[in-house]
């Protein structure tokens, strides 16, 4: 509050690495309410609870779409004999991120159906029993471990 923040941004060409026009801006921090700033809500590997067993090797769940979808980019490893993978988080999800989603997956395994398309129902929840977690539960197609779950998932 009261501090001045300077921001410099560029578009980066991911092919060449070259940057384009530079944009510079500054603002004095006021209260969250008056700034109109909406924090970007996103869950990644950095948000995993280190004290719990995890069933993902990659996790990126991005809520910043401004659309009725969550963007997934995760690799589910599965666990035990259950066709699901849990990512346990180190803090609760904001209430507007709690819900159910569904996204596409594609196998990354070896052998039968290694590249099979699948659908996953995804529960985003805060549990008083085992803490906040994101559960990727297999539904359609042949179940494969590991599987990458990617793309937009409707949220309801």
């Amino acid at each position: 509050m009261g501090q001045k923040v300077f921001i410099e941004t560029y578009w980066l060409d991911t092919v060449t690495g070259c940057t384009g026009q530079v944009f510079r801006d500054s603002a004095i921090c006021e209260s969250d309410g008056s700034s109109g700033y909406t924090p970007r809500r996103r869950v990644t590997m950095r948000n995993l609870n280190p004290e719990q067993e995890q069933h993902v090797s990659s996790l990126d769940v991005d809520f910043s779409t401004g659309a009725p979808v969550v963007q997934f980019d995760s690799v589910c490893l599965g666990h035990s004999n259950v066709a699901s993978s849990y990512a346990y988080l180190d803090q609760d999800l904001p209430e507007d991120c709690v819900g159910t989603s569904m996204a596409l997956g594609r196998g990354m395994g070896e052998g039968n159906c290694a590249l099979a398309a699948q659908s996953y129902i995804i529960w985003l929840r805060n549990s008083s029993w085992d803490g906040a977690n994101i559960c990727f539960a297999h539904r359609g197609g042949y179940y494969v471990k590991p599987t990458e779950v990617f793309g937009p998932g409707i949220l309801y």
């Binding site: 910043s64 779409t65 507007d96 991120c97």
Partner: peptide, 11 residues
Amino acid sequence: TALARGSNTVK
């Protein structure tokens, strides 16, 4: 979908 749109997912 685009990302970092300044608003979050709508249910």
